[in-house]
């Protein structure tokens, strides 16, 4: 007669390992690599003089952030929550307001066709040396959001699809209608 080997009750092992797996899944901190993507302008060659580009005043939206993180848009104090609407209004200029960027007619090809758009508008962000990073990023975020919303609207109107569902060429077409023009000046001291 064979010797009887005592057996360990392992029926709960699966449960235990499953619990352990879930425990480590929850506790591991995954560093998500997300961020606000921006593009810096190319450097100015040292021998080249910095010339003031002549931008028509109506084409310019000046956004200033001071050292106390207060926002000033076109000389008016503003809350950051209102910035998105203001920027959209400025970029679109639907009513051909004389104080907003000049509208230019251009053919963007099917299915968009001939559209009037603010070709030369520029949004200029100026911040103080002591501006908080969070405040600066919020402003950048709202401006990018304004462009994203306009592009989304455009995609829905002409392609009846969400912007990120379009193919690359179609996205480029829309980007031409709403070119992202956020300019950043060198930081200066705007009082305290």
């Amino acid at each position: 007669m064979a010797k009887k080997i005592p057996q360990i009750n392992a029926s709960s092992m699966a449960d235990i390992s499953f619990l352990l797996l879930i425990f480590f899944l929850v506790t591991t901190s995954m560093d998500v690599n997300q961020g606000l993507a921006r593009r810096l302008p190319a450097p100015i060659p040292p021998d080249q003089k910095i010339e003031d580009k002549d931008i028509n005043k109506r084409n310019l939206l000046v956004v200033k952030i001071n050292s106390a993180n207060q926002l000033m848009v076109q000389g008016q104090l503003m809350d950051v929550k209102q910035l998105r609407e203001k920027a959209k209004e400025f970029i679109k200029n639907e009513n051909d307001n004389a104080f907003m960027p000049k509208l230019v007619e251009e053919d963007f090809g099917a299915p968009i066709g001939v559209v009037r758009y603010t070709k030369d508008h520029v949004i200029s962000v100026q911040n103080d040396v002591d501006t908080q990073y969070q405040a600066y990023l919020e402003v950048q975020n709202e401006l990018v959001a304004a462009y994203n919303e306009l592009r989304e609207e455009c995609a829905q109107k002409y392609f009846h699809k969400a912007y990120n569902e379009l193919d690359e060429d179609q996205q480029k077409q829309i980007q031409k209608v709403y070119p992202q023009k956020i300019s950043e000046a060198e930081p200066k001291n705007y009082g305290n």
């Binding site: 997300q34 961020g35 606000l36 593009r39 810096l40 190319a42 040396v129 002591d130 501006t131 600066y136």
Partner: peptide, 23 residues
């Protein structure tokens, strides 16, 4: 403070690292 960030940005521009992302 934005002064620090601005310095970094200038340095990146000079090195032609123009694609950036603010985490």
């Amino acid at each position: 403070k934005m002064g620090v960030i601005a310095d970094i940005k200038q340095e990146l521009r000079r090195a032609y690292a123009l694609k950036i992302s603010y985490a």
